[in-house]
Simulated scan of single mutants.
Amino acid sequence: MLANDYAIELHRLEQIGPVDIPHIKGVKTIIKDRLDAHTYDPEVMKHMANKPLNQPLSRNLTELRQGGAPEIIPKANYDGVVVDSLMSYEMGREVPYLKISNHRLPRENKALIYVHGGAYFGGAVSDTLIPLKYLATMYAGTIYSIDYGLAPEHPYPSAIFDCLSVVSLIAKDHSEVQISGDSAGASIALGVSQLANQLGICQIDDHVLFYPTIIHGSNHNGPLWDDKKISIAPNERKYLHSNYRTFKQLDRLMTQFYTDGKSFDLTSPIISPLHADPTNFKNLTVIVGEFDPFRLQDEALAEQVGTAGGDVTFIRYGGMGHAFFNYIGKCAVAEDSIIEANKRL
């Protein structure tokens, strides 16, 4: 996208406000559609068109981790933003994490805990460093990004305990603790929030989730995976359907690697937050792409929390699939989503 077009699109997105969506009850909904509605963003379509349709997903962990690595995104100089590499030894664990702060902003005594995505078996704090540095240019607190141990070498619930270690440390010095994450990291974040409250570590009221996956063991022929519910231009439906098929395979593999093949109750609210008591998540923001295969489960979570009396904002970006942080600097949506997240922190 040309720089001028990017700026115009970012300005357009910033002007879009809430609308009523009847099937998502109790939720403030913001739909940021493309001008060419119900079509893939050209950058996303380039990626989709380069992949064979309905191709079986590799089950090889090394190949999966390589395939899940984000594209190189542009480097930017965020003046005043400082990144420190630190370690938590709380709860008898050794957990590396990044502290991301901006000394040019007046800071409140609040902390944002961030949990990166990567299907539980991939990803790294470096993947989301640029989006978080951008967030740090406007967030009036300190951001902590956790380098938790990946499955299957560190299977469930290890990642949750790693994150609890950092939360336990950070909560000692901050009056307010918020939590965020993307994809599988958002699911881990919701498990952490529940346990932090139940164990008396701290109360986490603000949850900002980017395209979360929030249920294991769901019925892939059921309503949470029905791509026929998604409006899309007829000539692009084959790409949507193929992507849904790929994500159904990925969903099974995520559970397999996350649990290391062991038998867990997948309806536990810690591993599958869609089964949690929705009153646990009082202030919730869910940000997802129109064509993300996790969209329907994200809508279900937003409605559950909203009808239980929570303060819920659901933001859907037209033309986008999963993991649109990868398009920062290419698609204005990625930048706008961070601006929207900051409004709710």
Rank of each mutant, 00 (worst) to 15 (best):
V177I: 15
A184M: 04
G185Y: 06
S183H: 06
I188C: 02
H154I: 00
A189G: 10
N197V: 05
A196S: 14
S187T: 14
S193P: 11
S193L: 09
S193E: 04
S165I: 03
V177W: 07
G185N: 00
S187N: 15
A140L: 09
S187M: 12
K172Q: 15
I188P: 12
P152N: 02
F161C: 02
N197S: 11
A171L: 12
L150M: 14
S168D: 14
P152T: 06
D147I: 01
S180Q: 03
G181C: 01
I143F: 06
L190Y: 01
G181A: 01
M138G: 07
I170F: 09
A140V: 02
D162I: 05
I160V: 15
I160K: 01
A171Q: 12
A171E: 03
N197E: 13
L169H: 11
I188H: 01
I179G: 09
N197A: 12
Q178C: 14
Y148S: 07
L190S: 04
V166N: 03
V192G: 03
I170Y: 03
V192C: 10
S158F: 03
D147C: 00
P157H: 13
P155E: 00
H154W: 12
T137Y: 10
E176M: 05
A189Q: 13
S193G: 15
E176L: 08
A189C: 11
I143W: 03
G185L: 05
I179Q: 04
M138E: 10
K172S: 11
A159Y: 08
L195N: 13
A151H: 06
G141N: 07
A186S: 09
I188S: 08
M138C: 00
Q194P: 04
V166E: 09
I170K: 03
A159N: 02
L169W: 02
Q198P: 01
I160C: 04
P155C: 04
T137C: 06
T142C: 07
P152H: 02
E176H: 09
I179W: 00
C163G: 01
A151Q: 06
S145P: 06
N197D: 14
Y144W: 04
